[in-house]
Write a protein that binds this DNA or RNA. Sequence first.
DNA 1: CCCATTACTTACAAATTTGTTAGTATCATA
DNA 2: TATGATACTAACAAATTTGTAAGTAATGGG
Lengths: 121, 121
Amino acid sequence: MGKRKENSTNLLNESYIMESCDLTYAICKIGGRWKLLILCKLENGTLRFSELRNQINGITERMLTLQLRELEKDGLVKRTVYAEVPPRVDYELTEIAKELVPIWAKLSKWGAKHKILVSEF
Amino acid sequence: MGKRKENSTNLLNESYIMESCDLTYAICKIGGRWKLLILCKLENGTLRFSELRNQINGITERMLTLQLRELEKDGLVKRTVYAEVPPRVDYELTEIAKELVPIWAKLSKWGAKHKILVSEF
DNA sequence: CCCATTACTTACAAATTTGTTAGTATCATA
DNA sequence: TATGATACTAACAAATTTGTAAGTAATGGG
């Protein structure tokens, strides 16, 4: 998000892990603080920047921008800019991201169940 | 992993997100740097601390300990200590974690596919 | 008594992520 | 000409995660 240091142990470890484990790779792509919330909001269709901002409690414009940029770079979100003033930018899920939706659904279900189980102990 | 500051915006945001999105909740539970690699190694059965350490390239004992502790606290891994010297500690997936295995498998597949697609552009 | 083994801890430092605050550009409209 | 709306960016600070290096306890074997 800021630039990362090249050749830090940290970065090397991350690279190694992403290479050696497709699962880690997958989850890294959606691992930012707000990414999943953003992706979930987009499940039902296109939204513009301000709509996302308003639907996600607590996110700052900076964070929203950063997370969207990464999602875009990673091919999960498509960004469309309209040449209007005031500006208008739309975001939507890519095909690749849509493939994830049914998997998310299961994970989400697991999360809900697990949340209860753990909080009950 | 170190203790977190109470009442930081960061922590509040995290709490909010975990509450409002089961998916984020789920993924947070497995989001540590080495957690998935650990969980994957345990898919085939019980391993002891040193076996995990040896099978995961680059992990330090500190990190392995920290991640295992969180996985244990979150109910994903079961820790069994034997009263032996030198010490012997076994780790295995819990039932809850095993429920995730088929989901991981799909995510992992997606990751593998996505990795290729993105690197090709 | 000394050493090796195993599964950790501890104190510290570096890297990374996240948050805060204050801008910026553009142009239609008042 | 000043204002407002929208989607950002920039500089900085705080919080959090990750890594480094050096221990520790207990006990069987030499």
